[in-house]
Design a protein around this nucleic acid. Structure first.
Length: 345
DNA sequence: CACTCGTGGCA
DNA sequence: TTGCCAAGAGT
């Protein structure tokens, strides 16, 4: 069986030499830690999101709101617009709720325990453990998709995900000690991200191959075993681009709950499998401007784009096309692009 | 447990 | 082109 102590020392030594340099990370051995605010912000942005995608958002947020109290004081609309394009918008709503809870209930200082962090909005088991270990140097079992994959390969776990989660978490727990907990968590995640990758892992560069049951079996890439996902349905809908005399576009704030919740959006029909009720929001000389395709987590979508020149007013927020594009989720930004130059509508 | 909830890159 | 998947959380 894999030797826990040996794996720890070999992986930490590998991390000391190969740690990725990331904006929100203090390099190993520097004797410094990243502020809790930045650790938390980066962890929330990185939930189900790649490092290259999240990085410019991290820069923008920390420049505009250098502390958690600054963020707590920011208007909802500004924060939601700043998050536009990053996806999973409940994260942005919870981010604000969390910042405000820290500001009002904790004097602007993050709780320094895993349990205290777990009680905050948008902070689940992973993020609480990550912030506790990375920002506060507490022994915590940080288990994300990388850690699950590394454990599944090290121990050749045949149980498929998601049923294997508890077992993978137990396997990860045996490595947790008071020695360099933050570095340990990041070392495991870096290994998973750069060497023990989902596809074509580079086992030749891995410090743990001599301890890895998956490698010993010859096909480490088959772990973790996964159950098949249901295929996603395809929905249809119509999106309406209304331009007023000043070239501004009509937007509406979407309800807090549900898809793209809390974000600005273009007026649309319902999105459904098969025919949809495409009654236009107002009477106008509507023109067809083509369609956009978009893929969400659990369905794909074809949106017909219809454009019209209209008078302003109504229950809409009228914004310049530039401002709208920056504030809109990607699916609507695509539709706006498809609609073309406002002067030509 | 099962489902909802984005986006972009890549094989 | 299509499917996979990335530092998950909430319900």
């Amino acid at each position: 069986m894999p030797d826990v102590s040996l794996i720890r020392s070999e992986l930490l030594a590998w991390y000391d030499a190969h740690a990725r340099s990331l904006q929100w990370r203090a390099p190993p051995g520097a004797g410094t830690r990243t502020e809790p605010y930045r650790v938390w912000l980066s962890e929330v942005m990185l939930q189900q999101t790649t490092v290259p995608h999240a990085t410019p958002y991290f820069h923008d947020f920390t420049r505009r709101w250098p502390t958690v109290s600054d963020l707590a004081a920011a208007p909802d609309a500004e924060v939601m617009a700043a998050w536009a394009g990053l996806g999973y918008y409940a994260r942005a709503r919870n981010l604000l709720a969390c910042a405000r809870a820290v500001a009002s209930d904790h004097g602007g200082v993050f709780p320094d325990t895993e349990a205290g962090l777990l009680a905050l909005p948008g902070v689940g088991a992973y993020t609480a453990a990550a912030v506790a270990s990375i920002a506060f140097d507490r022994a915590a079992n940080v288990v994300d998709g990388n850690v699950e994959r590394v454990m599944a390969r090290l121990f050749a776990v045949e149980t498929p995900l998601p049923a294997a989660r508890p077992e993978l978490k137990r396997l990860a727990a045996q490595f947790i000690t008071d020695d360099r907990p933050g570095d340990w968590a990041q070392a495991l995640m870096d290994l998973g991200a750069t060497v023990c990758r989902p596809k074509s892992p580079t086992c030749g560069l891995c410090p743990l191959t001599d301890q890895c049951l998956g490698f010993a079996g010859g096909t480490p890439e088959r772990f973790p075993i996964k159950t098949k996902k249901a295929e996603r349905p395809h929905r249809l809908g119509v999106v309406y681009v209304m331009i007023d005399a000043e070239g501004r576009v009509a937007l509406e704030r979407r309800p807090d709950k549900g898809l793209l919740g809390g974000m600005m959006g273009l007026p649309t029909s319902d999105w459904a499998v098969g025919a949809v009720d495409a009654a236009a929001p107002i009477a106008a000389d509507w023109r067809e401007a083509g369609a956009v395709e978009h893929v969400f987590t659990h369905f794909s979508l074809t949106l017909s784009v219809r454009t019209a020149r209209v008078e302003g007013g109504g229950d809409y927020e009228w914004m310049t096309v530039e401002a709208a594009r920056a504030a809109l989720p990607t699916v609507f930004a695509k539709a706006l692009d498809r609609a073309g130059e406002p002067a030509l509508i």
